[in-house]
Design a protein around this nucleic acid. Structure first.
Lengths: 205, 205
DNA sequence: CGTGCAAACGGACCGTGGTCCGGTTCTATT
DNA sequence: AATAGAACCGGACCACGGTCCGTTTGCACG
């Protein structure tokens, strides 16, 4: 009876213990340091643990896996970009006409996917499941398509629009097919226009 | 002087030695057997070697890496699909109007990317570099877009069209967002129509 | 302060991908 | 058939991701 003075609200599953939080920060810093020293392939779980001065098990407790650690690093650097999109200066931020925002959004996202290509690849599937990255992009694209008055299955059109600038596909185009970035940018803008301007088929749901 | 009766034509880098070829076949069979018994996660390089009755080193000599082995398995199963596309019955094969062929092509590719999702993921980047898979799809899509009289950067439009039905993206939609396959199919058909019917922008290169 | 316990910690341990090198086998040439 | 040498084979060996469990630590309550 005396054990529950507060309602057991389960919104946040549990607050993090202070030593745990400290270690999380130390580990992220250590990983960042290692990346810029040895490159991503030098970021070994054991190395990170040693650099942060903790045991190996602790790293896995915090991030579950190597992919999880990479995803965490990604999330961290993604935070300010999301801030730029939600409240920064136009055309990326609010204020510009929707089509300009969409173009700026795609262009900016493309740069990120290219710049962090290695990290994204190292994050593997963990990157996709992380809401921070995937879900935000999807939601905002849907929003912009809605603002533009696009008819049809907005969710799928948003996916179709962002898929070609996913990191894996850009890497293929840039590194192997040697396609220039400017050309890819122009191609994507053309794609956006085709998707936005064209009304859906009559028979389409 | 006497050592080169034949011109050193380097088209095929070298013919494979007979024992090597035998081992390659045995290894592919062994891997296939293991997949249907234990699933893909049970396909260990050591297990494959043991099942084929060879040493571990041999597996790596033939396929370079686990990803390479998976890519080889993929290529194998992809061969007859390519035959269907190039010479099978319409609408997938030649004979049907281009738009019908394109729709059939995308639909069929989607099924494959879904059915072999695990294998494709396990093949990782090796799947992309393998010409058999990526290059054929790209080439044929470009060809169909050309037949349809699409203007603009055909290569990039082809990429944009196929990207949303890549395995990784389909997995995200189907397994996590719980989007039905029929809906995805319809959405892709709509995308194809938007890309094909819309003329390119004036300013586009 | 003391006490109880959930949570966090550390590092030994395991499985698997990948490398290496001494020994073996195939094939071209005479 | 004999020879030479390149290609191939095998399995010991290493590194790294991931797990496990006995121990320690922070925290809430008395």
């Amino acid at each position: 009876m005396s054990t529950h003075p507060l309602l057991p609200i389960i919104g946040e599953p549990r607050p993090e213990r202070s030593d745990a939080a400290r270690n999380r920060a130390a580990l992220l810093e250590a990983a960042t340091r290692l990346i810029e020293q040895c490159g991503i392939q030098g970021v070994t779980m054991e190395a990170v643990a040693a650099e942060a001065g903790v045991g190996k098990g602790t790293v896995f407790r915090r991030f579950h896996s190597r992919e999880g650690l990479m995803a965490a690093l990604l999330d961290h650097s993604e935070a300010d970009w999301q801030a730029q999109v939600m409240g920064g200066p136009p055309p990326l931020g609010p204020g510009a006409p929707p089509m300009e925002r969409l173009l700026a959004f795609g262009r900016s996202r493309m740069e990120i996917n290219l710049r962090h290509a290695e990290l994204i690849q190292a994050a593997g599937r963990a990157g996709a499941r992380s809401y921070a990255a995937y879900s935000f992009v999807a939601t905002h694209t849907r929003y912009l398509l809605g603002e533009l008055g696009v008819r049809g299955d907005i969710a799928l059109l948003a996916t179709a629009l962002m898929a070609p600038i996913e990191s894996s596909i850009l890497e293929q185009q840039v590194r192997i097919e040697r396609i220039g970035i400017d050309r890819i940018r122009a191609g994507w803008a053309d794609l956006a226009r085709r998707i936005v301007e064209n009304p859906p088929d009559e028979g389409a749901r």
